[in-house]
Amino acid sequence: MQEDRILIEASEPCPRVDFDFGGNRFSLSGTCYPENTKEFFKPLLSRFNAHLEALSGADVVFELKLSYFNSGASRIFIQIFDTLEACADAGNEVAINWHCDDGDENMIELAEDF
């Protein structure tokens, strides 16, 4: 049986990952700028996508608490948000909480871009 929760401690340039599949609480924090972002996220996202597709009537929260991420990570986040949007369209309650520090203009602008 698969573990209900994937917890990876932060190790620069990779973020702390806390994906709680049982509680539908997902979080990325720290910094995120691995050279090969796709490779880092591939195993995580294949499970994440499959899990979200199977949900119905669930309450999902996705949290981003990053001080910095690179352009490669942006491409991954947009995919995550697409999956979350599809999950909401399928009748689930979905919230995305994007935490930005006060005064971090770049991050606030990026959050708006998404």
């Binding site: 700028y33 050279e35 001080s67 910095y68 690179n70 352009s71 490669g72 520090d101 005064g103 971090d104 203009e105 770049n106 991050m107």
Partner: peptide, 21 residues
């Protein structure tokens, strides 16, 4: 200031990762 230092850091990362990639 925070915005400038984050911008400098970001430009540095993108430039070096461009070379590596």
């Amino acid at each position: 200031d925070r915005t400038t230092s984050m911008s400098m850091f970001s430009v540095f990362v993108e430039m070096v990762q461009n070379v590596i990639r």
